[in-house]
Nucleic acid binder design. Sequence first.
DNA 1: AGCTTCATTCAACGAGCGTAGAACGAAATC
DNA 2: GATTTCGTTCTACGCTCGTTGAATGAAGCT
Lengths: 190, 190
Amino acid sequence: MSTRAEQRRNTEARILEAAGRMFADLGYERTTIRAIASAAGVDGGLVMHYFGSKEALFAKVARFSSEEPPSGTPEEVAEQLLAALARRLEDEPVASLAVLRSMLTHDDAAEDFRAIALPRLDRLAEALSGEDARLRAGLINAITHGILIERYLLQIAGLETVDPQKAIDLLRPCFQLLAGVQPDERTAEH
Amino acid sequence: MSTRAEQRRNTEARILEAAGRMFADLGYERTTIRAIASAAGVDGGLVMHYFGSKEALFAKVARFSSEEPPSGTPEEVAEQLLAALARRLEDEPVASLAVLRSMLTHDDAAEDFRAIALPRLDRLAEALSGEDARLRAGLINAITHGILIERYLLQIAGLETVDPQKAIDLLRPCFQLLAGVQPDERTAEH
DNA sequence: AGCTTCATTCAACGAGCGTAGAACGAAATC
DNA sequence: GATTTCGTTCTACGCTCGTTGAATGAAGCT
């Protein structure tokens, strides 16, 4: 029926998927190894045996596909940031949400987050034109994260059923302004 | 030296202050009653005796001064929102941070947060002019919370040493745009 | 002074957690 | 077919948590 290698890969994948969902839904402290194991249909000891510790399991889940840092002219940068946000508004980025949900209460998640966010922030600041590039890059970051948190994690009415395209169109002038795009270079649509 | 009533008030205040700090710094699950008690220089049992439960203590801390909802013309609304944000960037709103830090992992904190955020969102949406008022109100909310989170809770470089006035000036066009202020009515400064 | 109140501490409970290691049984290897 | 490997489960340890209730001793009252 299935070789041992297949069986193992399958089980590991099921555990990782269950873990991702639970870390994203409950955060690090509230998701228990037993609950992950139960959701994956296995025993808690097996999770330990495969991943070593809860910490290591979280790290495995959190090692999500880090997006390409934006580059180009300020206008291109703004458009790339908007596109990345639109993508994450269209289909739920479970691994990112696991980190976002956990980063405020779990030190290692905070480190994971900073390890990804800081270099991105630096590159972003370099790509922006004008004064206070670092501050403006920080604001763009904060806006993006705030929207994802409110949309997926808090599910505050007003954003949880958002039309991604509408939101992006509203945010475009904000991003262009913060990116340092000159007024006469601005576009209403991509 | 001190009457019993004074002593009690004093001790309760010390506990509440320590609890606020710890909830804001660590979140709900990671702050323990024992740690709060220790920080306040008392025994854990006393905290239980005074506040009944960890839950009730958190509720007491979280019942922070809810700000006046903004009202007036879109421009006035935008300016009031900016002023409120500036205030919170200038001195740390510990109780708000306790809720912000805890809301992603603690159900009751999430409820507290929604109970405050939802009516505000509705009133804000009413005060905005133009289409998609609800969406734009949600975006303004998300931006505000994102900035507070990044500034105080994540302390990502780029915002943790921010000059509030600079940030507000950068955000003014964004808020005005999302509030529905017409281009010819916009002001560069307050 | 004697009785009461109450701020405060102390010791202990039951539950849930991450984790470890022994045990079992089916697949893989020879 | 015998032996080894390994996916998987089971049981249990040690710890920390929120919470409880009895004990202590000084302040308040008559």
